[in-house]
């Protein structure tokens, strides 16, 4: 589904991704862990097509297409979704209006008819229940005055509504209490299927108890320095990242 080879990217002249390679097959869940500032969010942003980053090398192939040929909104319409580490607040546009605009924009791109209000309502109703979001939060402005946990749940709601083929979750678990974490994980797991893949960026092994990954990667200084199964996450929890960074320097 996703094949990244030797990806290099910089922002404002600063090199951030320094030859990142990653293969994600359909149906797989990949966890990416790594120290702060190692480039995890940058990687997610580059995938989503953020204009601030300049790709200086490598390739990103998604479903047989060169992903870099698509702009941000086209990538979304092609089935890519990024759950933001820090979701934006948009005072003055209701959550539901934004969702409706997003759904219909994507449907238009795919040459599908726009959803009627009734059909859209049905979808929203189901998905809001999935992440236990109250109607009141749907009517409120996007993320405005939402608690940290509500913002993250809102990201998962958007994901559930847009039903992406490839989801990238950037520290969706950070700042969540255990109940909110379970809700988020439930939302994510409901979406798991043999033809959907996920990249889950996290700091904490705890999330991976709820969202079982097929692979765990460590991103350090713009490169994947180690890949393992979920036991690697446990090991990282115990030992930290220091030993890996040293390996890179030495090796």
């Amino acid at each position: 589904m996703l094949s990244i080879k030797n990806l290099k990217a910089e922002i404002g002249g600063k090199k951030i991704l320094k030859g990142l390679s990653l293969e994600v097959a359909a149906g797989e869940v990949h966890a990416i862990m790594g120290p702060n500032g190692s480039g995890k969010s940058s990687f997610a942003n580059v995938l989503a097509g953020h204009g601030g980053y300049e790709m200086t090398g490598g390739s990103i192939n998604y479903l047989g297409k060169d992903l870099t040929e698509f702009n941000v909104e086209e990538r979304a319409a092609e089935g890519l979704f990024l759950a933001f580490q820090y979701p934006m607040e948009i005072p003055g546009v209701s959550n539901i209006a934004m969702l409706k605009t997003a759904v219909n924009s994507i449907r238009k791109y795919r040459n599908e008819d726009e959803l009627t209000a009734g059909a859209f309502l049905k979808v929203i109703k189901k998905k809001a229940a999935l992440v236990e979001m109250k109607q009141e939060l749907l009517k409120r402005s996007v993320n405005e005055g939402f608690s940290g946990g509500e913002k993250k749940r809102n990201e998962i709601l958007q994901m559930a509504v847009l039903e992406p083929t490839l989801s990238v979750l950037d520290e969706t678990d950070s700042g969540l209490d255990i109940d909110a974490l379970k809700i988020v994980a439930h939302g994510v797991n409901t979406l798991r299927s043999p033809d959907r893949s996920m990249i889950v960026i996290t700091h904490y092994q705890r999330l991976l108890d709820y969202i079982q990954p097929d692979y765990v990667h460590v991103l350090a200084d713009g490169q994947i320095v180690k890949t393992g199964n979920k036991n690697l996450a446990l090991e990282l929890e115990e030992r930290g990242y220091g030993w890996l960074e040293k390996q890179v320097v030495n090796g």
Binding site: N71, V93, M98, A102
Partner: peptide
Amino acid sequence: YLRSRGVSETMARALLTFA
């Protein structure tokens, strides 16, 4: 943020201006 949800750039700007 809006574009990453599939909203076109023109629409995203208009929506934010409206907001």
